[in-house]
Structure formats: structure tokens, C-alpha cells
Design a protein around this nucleic acid. Structure first.
Length: 425
RNA sequence: GGAGAUGUACCGCAGUGGUCUAACGGGGCUGACUCGAAAUCAGCUUAGGUGUAAGCCUACGUGGGUUCAAAUCCCACCAUCUCCGCCA
């Protein structure tokens, strides 16, 4: 969430930002709750002071009438306190949940727009792959090469699940290891993270585990959920932590499964491996000083480009518009790879995403650093995809197919796979 | 899953109803002594909220309860350790 003091200090800016992000938040009501909360807090604190002083008077020996008087007052205060505390806690809950609805500020250069159409392509690398034949999509390739099985997965697990077989298994592991080596080279600590997280962590990162809109699978009765990304477990890793200034930046990279409900997602653009309930992803995460987060964000993007560019795949970089940012993000870049089997004649499809969430998540998760003068401030937190295996696989297979139905393995992956091509059995 | 023990501030640990404003020790910081260091001595050293400020309020694993008053008593839960059972 944002700093509660900003509600009045930066009122106009917050209001404009909510509009730019195409969100509906009743800011005035939240401000109203804030002052109501403060009023009740003062009342409760005043009553507690009276209670404490009254109790203090009863320490020593007292005569009976005096004692009875103090006891009566104590009882009266006790009732008043619990009455007011209940009011306070109700108002507080509403206030906090309102405060959490307010999105992060947006970077001044983030394009203003309502939906993904308004995202700005800032860079093109390579040209859409040209074929002398009609290219197949990855689903057809996967079946013909006997490396994927969607139908059986639907029978066993339901729609939007998949089995990988044979070379696709090697390809998944090769992609993970290839990306891991690059990310480690940049000083990230490798981790394999839990695939389950507590709801308070999910919410701190900015995911809503509850409700129809939620993209998260909750584990009933446990207070936990399956993670949609290792961003959750990497970001939650330091919840409650106070860093010394010299300890920053901390750079982590985590490999995890990712589970997403994707309720209602269907159609041409979601087929096959592109949108699935479960996939594997290597995620990068940085905790840093506020003044450094913009430059680390650029750094995360450049690592993503190094990974994707290294596979010789055509892609573009997109600067995400305000309406498409997601509440915690201050700025977000996506890499969209060319996918020849997407849509009628091929299209770009998102393969990575990197966000600078500034102090928005840190305030929820209480992650700070101690300045040289001993003051504490919230850290800035950034995340970025190193490789989302299923989507990377779509791009690799579809771009590297040949007229005779084979797939040529990108040079960078050959050492990790031990083979140069995938052909029919 | 069963039995027992433990959970207190950066670390260790004391505290079984009211000066707990959380002792004591370690560590850290500042200063004195010293050419400098060690040793020694003195002082400081949890976080959040609220208030112009003095101050006040909150937090002793978490959540409830009892009481005029809870680190302390009661209930539930969580975590850690030891032993047993099961298990990749």
C-alpha cells in the first residue's frame, strides 16, 4: 500500500493516478475513515491512560470506601474501553482494506492508457521469422514430435494442463538451467522456493487470494495458497526484516512451479501452452535502496533481453501503460516474443515481465533498511521473469521449425540438451 | 500422529498478579585514559502509533478470556527442540 500520510498530502495526484489506471476507488471515503479512525484512537488511548492511572492507585493499602470507589471506576473504564476498541477495530479494518485498494504511483514516463492496446512498444529486436511454408503452432508440433500431450492431461487433471514428454522434458530443464546460469552470472543467489505461501504474504505482494476474480488456488482450511509466481515467496522471504544499508541490494532468483486458475480464459490467444494452470518459472527479485530502483529495473530488463536474445528469437519490448500496470507496479516492461503459430499469421506474445514496485509491497510486508543516521525507511522491491518455461517453449518450437517438420534447437541450448534438433520418432 | 520441554528486545537469559518505566550478561555505538591498541571506567543501545511539545498508547510466539490491574492466571492455536511411531 501507499503511505497513509499521502492521502491528504498528495490527494490530487492519487486521484489522477486512480483515473489513469482505469480503477474505481472511493478516495474521499477512505480519507473519511482515516479521520474517524484517528478520532477513535485518541478516545481509546485516553481511556487507557485513565485505566492505567486508576490501577496504579490501587497498588498499596487502601481503606475500604476508597477501594470500592476505585474498583467501580475501573469497571466502568473497562466497559468503555472494550466498547470503543470494538468500534476502532471495525473502522480500522475498513480503513486498511480501503488503503490497500489504492494503487502505487506510476512512473512519470509510463504511458497513460486504459488497456493493453495502449502499451508502447519501445524496441524491436529481430524480425518476425519468415517461412517458405505455412508454419505449425506448438500444439501441432508437440503432437507430431511426440513431446507434449494435452488430451491425456485433460483426462487426468482437467483442461489447461499438459504432459511434457521426451525432448520437451530436456528442453524445459535446458531453459531453466540456461537462464539460471545467466542470472547467477549477474550475482543473484539461486533458490528453489516453496510452491505454497500464506495468504498474508500473498496479500502483501498484492495478490488477492479470495473471490471470483482471484487467479490463485487456495488450499482450503489452511490459510495458504498455491503460488502464482515465486515473486510471492521471494518477496515474502524478508518480511519483517530491517536491513543495514550496506547489505543492499539483495538479489535472489527462485525456481518454482506457478499455479493459476485462469478462470474464463479461453480462445485463440490462450491455446496450448500459452495459458495453463501450471508451469515452471525462474524469477528474479531485488531488494534495494529507493534511489537505485529505477536503474535496477533497467538492469532486470537487460538481463531478460540477454536471456531471450541469446536464444536468437525475435522479440519486442513493451512499456506497460498505466491501465495495465497492476496495483503494486510503478513501472512495468514486458518482453513479447514472436510466436508464428499465434493468431492467424503469427503475433507477439508475452514471455517475460519486470516490475518496479517501489516501496508498495515493502510497506505491506514491513521490509526496511536502516540509514547511516539510524533512521529506517522502506526498501524498494523489483521482480522480473528470467524464464517462464511454457511460454519460452512456445517461442522456441514455433520459430525454429523446418519444412520437414523438425525443430532446430537454439545454439545456446544445445550444450544443455545434448541434441541439436527434435525430429519425428 | 503420540509424549514432554521451550518461546521475553540484536544474541543469551531472569522475571509466577501491582515502582516491569522488562533486571543481568554478551554484542554494538559514543566518550575518558593511551602515541595507537588491548584492558579498564562512564554513558547510550527494541519497534510502531499519536501529539507542536512534555508526554501518552501499543507490542513479552499468535488469538481470545479472567481481573480495578496480566510477561505472570485460564483456553485455543502456531513454531522450535528431545524422544517414540510412520515415511521418500
Amino acid at each position: 500500500m501507499i503511505d497513509s500520510k499521502d492521502l491528504t498530502n498528495r490527494y490530487e495526484e492519487i486521484k489522477r493516478n486512480i483515473v489513469n489506471r482505469n480503477m474505481k476507488v472511493n478516495l474521499d471515503e477512505i480519507i473519511n475513515l482515516q479521520s474517524k479512525r484517528l478520532e477513535l484512537l485518541h478516545a481509546v488511548e485516553d481511556l487507557r491512560t485513565q485505566r492505567n492511572q486508576n490501577a496504579l492507585k490501587m497498588k498499596g493499602k487502601l481503606d475500604n470506601t476508597e477501594r470500592e470507589k476505585l474498583l467501580a471506576l475501573g469497571r466502568e473504564l473497562k466497559d468503555k474501553i472494550s466498547e470503543n476498541e470494538e468500534l476502532l477495530s471495525n473502522v480500522e479494518k475498513q480503513y486498511i482494506s480501503g488503503l490497500r485498494q489504492i494503487p502505487n504511483y506510476a512512473h512519470k514516463d509510463a504511458p497513460v492508457g486504459k488497456e493493453d492496446k495502449d502499451n508502447t512498444a519501445v524496441k524491436y529486436v529481430g524480425k518476425p521469422t519468415a517461412f517458405s511454408f505455412k508454419p505449425k503452432d506448438h500444439i501441432q508440433l508437440g503432437e507430431e514430435l511426440d513431446i507434449m500431450d494435452f488430451d491425456t492431461a485433460t483426462k487426468v487433471s482437467g483442461p489447461k494442463f499438459y504432459y511434457l514428454k521426451n525432448e520437451a522434458v530436456l528442453l524445459q530443464m535446458a531453459l531453466e538451467r540456461y537462464a539460471l546460469d545467466i542470472v547467477m552470472k549477474h550475482g543473484f543467489t539461486p533458490m528453489i522456493t516453496p510452491d505454497v505461501a500464506k495468504e498474508e504474504i500473498l496479500e502483501g505482494i498484492g495478490f488477492n487470494p479470495r473471490g471470483e476474480e482471484s487467479n490463485i488456488y487456495t488450499l482450503e482450511g489452511t490459510g495458504t495458497a498455491l503460488v502464482g509466481t515465486a515473486e510471492i515467496t521471494l518477496g515474502g522471504y524478508f518480511s519483517g526484516k530491517v536491513f543495514n544499508k550496506e547489505e543492499l541490494p539483495v538479489k535472489l532468483t527462485g525456481l518454482s512451479h506457478c499455479f493459476r486458475r485462469e478462470a474464463g480464459a479461453a480462445g485463440q490467444y490462450s491455446k496450448g501452452l500459452y495459458r495453463v494452470h501450471q508451469f515452471s518459472k525462474l524469477e528474479m527479485f531485488i531488494f534495494c535502496l529507493p534511489e537505485e530502483s529505477d536503474s535496477y529495473h533497467e538492469k532486470l530488463l537487460s538481463i531478460e533481453e540477454e536471456i531471450f536474445g541469446g536464444l536468437d528469437l525475435p522479440y519486442r519490448v513493451v512499456d506497460t501503460c498505466t491501465g495495465d500496470l497492476g496495483a503494486p507496479a510503478y513501472r512495468k516492461y514486458d518482453i513479447e516474443a514472436w510466436m508464428p503459430g499465434r493468431g492467424e499469421n503469427g503475433d507477439y506474445g508475452e514471455v517475460t515481465s519486470t516490475s518496479n514496485c517501489t516501496d508498495y509491497q515493502a510497506r505491506n510486508l514491513n521490509i526496511k533498511f536502516k540509514d547511516s543516521d539510524g533512521k529506517t525507511q522502506y526498501v524498494h522491491m523489483l521482480n522480473g521473469t528470467a524464464v517462464a518455461v511454457s511460454r519460452a517453449m512456445v517461442a522456441v518450437l514455433e520459430n525454429n521449425q523446418t519444412a520437414d517438420g523438425k525443430v532446430i534447437i537454439p545454439k545456446a541450448l544445445v550444450p544443455y540438451m545434448g541434441i541439436k534438433e527434435i525430429k519425428k520418432k
